[in-house]
Amino acid sequence: MPEGSASLQLAVGDRVVYPNQGVCRVSAIDVKEVAGQKLTFVTMRREEDGAVVMVPEGKVLAIGVRKVASAE
């Protein structure tokens, strides 16, 4: 991610809310080559049905992904 860009610090195992998809758990953060460029992807699995969603790390905030609020 370019320096100075806002990002959401995620780790494998974090629970997040993905708008219009529901609650997901981060299952992987991997670098993949797409069209000759190396990009970091956040892979999330929906808790409702296990569907897998992959989002480029740089788009996580723009999409509206946020961490699940704690009970505290």
Rank of each mutant, 00 (worst) to 15 (best):
P19Y: 07
V60M: 15
C24E: 00
K32F: 15
R45A: 08
G4M: 11
G22E: 04
I63E: 14
A62V: 10
S5D: 10
G58S: 14
V42W: 02
F41D: 01
A62Y: 06
T40W: 08
S70V: 11
F41G: 00
V53N: 03
E47M: 06
A51M: 12
A71L: 11
V12D: 01
A51K: 12
K38G: 03
E3G: 12
Q9T: 11
E33K: 06
G36T: 02
K59W: 15
V53Y: 15
E33N: 08
E48S: 14
Q21G: 10
M54L: 08
D14K: 01
P56H: 07
V26I: 14
M54Q: 09
K67F: 08
R45I: 15
R45H: 14
S7R: 13
E72R: 09
A35V: 04
K67A: 07
P19R: 05
V60S: 05
N20L: 08
N20W: 05
E33V: 13
M44S: 00
N20P: 12
R25K: 07
S70L: 11
G36L: 02
S70W: 10
V55R: 02
I29K: 02
V65I: 15
D49K: 01
V12S: 02
N20I: 04
V16Q: 00
G22K: 04
V68R: 05
M54I: 15
K38V: 08
S7E: 10
E57A: 15
A51E: 09
P2V: 12
G50R: 02
A28H: 06
A11Y: 07
P56A: 12
E47F: 04
V52L: 13
E47N: 02
V31C: 00
Q37D: 06
T43A: 04
E72S: 12
G13M: 01
E47Y: 04
L61M: 10
G13H: 02
A69R: 09
A69T: 13
M44C: 05
N20H: 09
T40N: 06
E72V: 10
R15D: 02
S7C: 02
T40L: 10
Y18H: 13
V17W: 15
L61H: 14
E47H: 03
E48A: 13
L39G: 05
V68W: 04
Q37K: 14
V23H: 04
G13P: 00
Q37M: 10
G64D: 07
G22D: 04
Q37Y: 06
A69G: 13
L10P: 02
E48G: 08
G58L: 11
R15P: 02
E57Q: 10
S27H: 08
L39Q: 09
L8K: 08
V34L: 06
E57V: 14
T43I: 14
A35W: 08
A71D: 13
L8D: 08
